[in-house]
Amino acid sequence: MKYRGRIGLAAFCGFFVGLFVGFDLVLFGAIQLDNITVSVLPIIGLFGGAALAMWAPLGRKRTDSTTP
């Protein structure tokens, strides 16, 4: 049996994680409103989420991953 992460869903969630982390930084006054980080974080989250799902799916059984 093969295991795979949910790449599309993880990218979707990663995007919103990045978006809301950016909002947090702005709303708590850690960075200025015009800081480029606010725009970049959702994009990092999008690709970061997809990468996490592709390369590090949690809960994968190691014995199954080597099954031919």
Binding site: M1, K2, Y3, R4, G5, R6, C13, P57, L58, G59
Partner: peptide, 16 residues
């Protein structure tokens, strides 16, 4: 959203 992300990156079984 972090909780959602942690759930979605969990592996799921795929039929060969």
């Amino acid at each position: 959203m972090l909780m959602n992300l942690s759930l979605t990156i969990r592996a799921r079984k795929v039929k060969p």
